[in-house]
């Protein structure tokens, strides 16, 4: 940084600190700690159903973070889709694969320490780079909210209509694909083994 630029930075109005008078940082920090703790428990617990339930806490905490970032529409979509349907799907998957209730000792694979090394190295590198890159960047949360339903809807249906429609086709394809994958194959129905299987179910 040249001296002129340095003086320009110094002459600029004092940058906002790490805390604002509204205290939104404190709320963000507390909810973030809860979210991160729930995520950590969710990936380390040995009880499979508890992992899904801690995932609910993590995803709900993220919805609160969206609200604190004034993105209310995203927050409610997060509550509806993630907390409402994805976790229910995961719980149904756990039940349909006969996941053991209670502690299962083989929830983690043998390469846990390699995974921990990779994750910690990635976390250190990412946090270092992010903090160093955005050291002097502040989000201005005052004024009209940037993510109300009106603003999001206007931008979505003014600029993003074609991707939106393509996404509906993708969802339809995923629906059909899930049905095709999860129903029994027709070829096996003709085989002699199929009636026994049907009777067993």
């Amino acid at each position: 940084m040249t001296p002129a630029a340095a003086t320009a930075v110094l002459a600029a109005p004092a940058p906002p600190g790490f805390l604002s008078p509204t205290g939104v940082e404190i709320a963000f920090l507390l909810v973030g700690l809860v979210t991160l703790g729930a995520a950590l428990v969710s990936v380390t617990t040995r009880q499979l159903v508890h992992a899904a339930l801690w995932l609910v806490v993590a995803l709900g905490g993220l919805a609160v973070e969206y609200l604190l970032l004034t993105a209310e529409f995203i927050a409610w979509v997060q509550v509806l889709i993630y907390v409402g349907s994805v976790v229910v799907l995961l719980l149904f998957g756990l039940m349909l694969t006969k996941a053991p209730i209670g502690r299962s000792p083989d929830a983690d694979s043998g390469n846990r320490w390699a995974a921990l090394t990779v994750a910690v190295a990635a976390a250190v590198a990412l946090v270092w780079v992010v903090v160093d890159a955005f050291r002097t960047t502040w989000i201005d949360l005052d004024g009209p909210a940037a993510g109300t339903t009106e603003v999001t809807g206007a931008s979505l249906f003014r600029h993003w209509v074609l991707p939106f429609e393509a996404l509906s086709v993708l969802l339809l394809a995923a629906l059909v694909g899930a049905i095709v994958l999860s129903r029994k194959a027709k070829a096996d129905a003709a085989a002699p083994a199929a009636p026994g299987k049907e009777g067993a179910r």
Partner: peptide, 25 residues
């Protein structure tokens, strides 16, 4: 709000998920 708050939280959550993908069976 400082941009580092959400960015750091996002990085830590990502690495938590990375650990889970690599370590879970």
């Amino acid at each position: 709000m400082h941009l580092a708050y959400p960015a750091v939280l996002s990085a830590l959550l990502f690495c938590t998920g990375l650990y889970g993908v690599l370590a879970r069976r």
